[in-house]
């Protein structure tokens, strides 16, 4: 990965020197190797701090939302999954392609710095997986699908076994059992909304959960409000989740959010497919739930 780091530095230097971008978004190493974190370069002197390593897990495309109202031209590094986030933003008209310089990295699979941070912290918890992040073991798209420059060796999908197998287990539960499963899981949620904040598909200017007029979902930390939150969020994620796994990664109470998202991915493909969110960018083309078709299926309602 040092190769990739060096190439990223080269590109960033070139882009900044030739004034092609105002800011270049990548990663820097924190006080510890595993504390690798997002890094924003505006001056060539800082390019040296850029790294790409096994902890470069963050989906940097979310940061584009910080710049959507500015005129900054942004260079950024994306892995396969992240690159689908760019497609989402372009499709949602949140960003113009010509303000972006995309450096794609074919991703060998990465580790989750938060898991290691938790293990290192000394806070009591069962040990977390320090190997390849869970989402990477399910990854079908390690190679970026939209980029201006591509780095690294092309990768085979990292998934093994049957896709959606966990979903099928849940689908096969009887309704009571299934309800109980979700109730048990979702009562743990502390409603911090971190999962929303880090989601690139959650790019509405006023989120429904902040809407007060009317207040669609109560702020109480209770089974009802929690279920409502997750139900509404799921509806909004349908056809938009690009499976970067950020929500699940940041959740401070380990809610398996990707379980819900995968079910949506599966159903979207089944009902409106074949379709996978953010898999190709064709200017002007709209994803299924952004258009209305009189013969749209409705038997799931």
């Amino acid at each position: 990965m040092t190769d990739i780091t060096l190439k990223i530095r080269e590109i960033a230097t070139r882009l900044l020197q030739s004034d092609q971008v105002d800011v270049f978004v990548g990663w820097e190493k924190g006080p510890q190797e595993y504390q690798t974190r997002p890094f924003f370069v505006r001056r060539v002197e800082d390019v040296e701090k850029l790294v790409f390593n096994e902890y470069s897990i963050h989906n940097l495309t979310n940061y584009l939302l910080k710049y959507r109202d500015s005129t900054d031209r942004v260079g950024l590094v994306v892995k396969g999954c992240d690159s689908r986030g760019i497609v989402r933003l372009l499709q949602d008209n949140q960003f113009k392609r010509n303000r972006l310089y995309i450096v794609g990295v074919c991703c060998p699979g990465i580790k989750d710095p938060l898991k290691i941070a938790k293990n290192q912290s000394g806070l009591a918890c069962p040990p977390n997986n320090e190997e390849i992040a869970d989402k990477c073991t399910r990854c079908l798209v390690p190679n970026p699908i939209i980029y201006d420059e591509l780095l690294g060796e092309s990768q085979e999908p990292h998934n093994s076994g049957e896709r959606f197998s966990e979903i099928k287990t849940i689908e096969n539960m009887d309704p009571n059992q299934r309800y109980q499963f979700f109730e048990d899981t979702l009562t743990q949620c502390i409603r911090c909304y971190a999962c929303r904040q880090v989601c690139v598909a959650c790019n509405c200017r006023t989120c429904i959960f902040d809407e007060m007029k009317p207040q669609w979902v109560g702020r109480e930390n209770s089974t009802t409000d929690n279920m409502m939150y997750h139900l509404v969020k799921a509806m909004h994620m349908a056809g938009r989740c690009i499976e970067c796994g950020e929500c699940e990664r940041v959740c401070p109470v380990n809610i398996p959010l990707m379980l819900i998202n995968s079910k949506l991915v599966k159903d979207m493909d089944h009902f409106f497919g074949s379709y996978e969110a953010g898999m190709e960018y064709v200017e002007g083309q709209k994803p299924p739930l952004s258009v209305y078709n009189p013969d749209d299926p409705d038997d799931f309602i």
């Binding site: 924190g30 006080p31 504390q35 974190r37 963050h58 938060l114 971190a194 940041v250 401070p252």
Partner: peptide, 14 residues
């Protein structure tokens, strides 16, 4: 705790 949980590596000591 905030150091261990920040998804973006923000560290109050730093």
């Amino acid at each position: 705790r905030c150091i261990s949980v920040c998804p973006n590596g923000i560290n109050i000591i730093d």
